[in-house]
């Protein structure tokens, strides 16, 4: 029982961090992570209330979506995959380009 609670607490903490980051980043891998967490949550709390095949599929698909989402996220920032090349200084750490709402006023805009 205590182990179960510990597992739920740890899983929830990780999920909150990932969901927070996904809400901020909003890229396709973010949605994969969210989907993975959602499917895993369904599988974890279903506890026999879902048909067995559906529960089994959820247990396989959930971690898969989460892992692919996490891998894609790191590959973007660490290796420049999925359009990350232009963000990376040679040999340096990638920096996120500012979104349209974060870029501040256009210095050329004289209106």
């Amino acid at each position: 029982m205590a182990v179960d609670l510990l597992g739920y607490a740890l899983g929830s903490a990780i999920a909150v961090v990932l969901l927070g980051y996904a809400a901020r980043e909003r890229r396709w891998w973010s949605w994969l992570q969210v989907a993975g967490i959602a499917v895993l949550t369904v599988a974890a709390v279903a506890d026999g209330r879902l048909p067995e095949p559906a529960e089994h599929v959820a247990r396989v698909i959930g971690p898969g979506l989460l892992v692919v989402g996490l891998l894609a996220w790191r590959l973007h920032w660490d290796a420049g995959w999925f359009g990350g090349d232009e963000l990376r200084p040679p040999g340096g750490r990638a920096v996120r380009s500012p979104g349209p709402d974060e870029a501040g006023p256009d210095p050329h805009d004289r209106s």
Binding site: V67, L71, L75, D78, A79
Partner: peptide, 18 residues
């Protein structure tokens, strides 16, 4: 080289971990 030596490490980590 760079894109690949990171993605192959990622694939190895994930697949072996699983």
């Amino acid at each position: 080289r760079r894109k690949l030596f990171i993605v192959t490490l990622g694939l190895y980590l994930v697949a072996n971990g699983l």
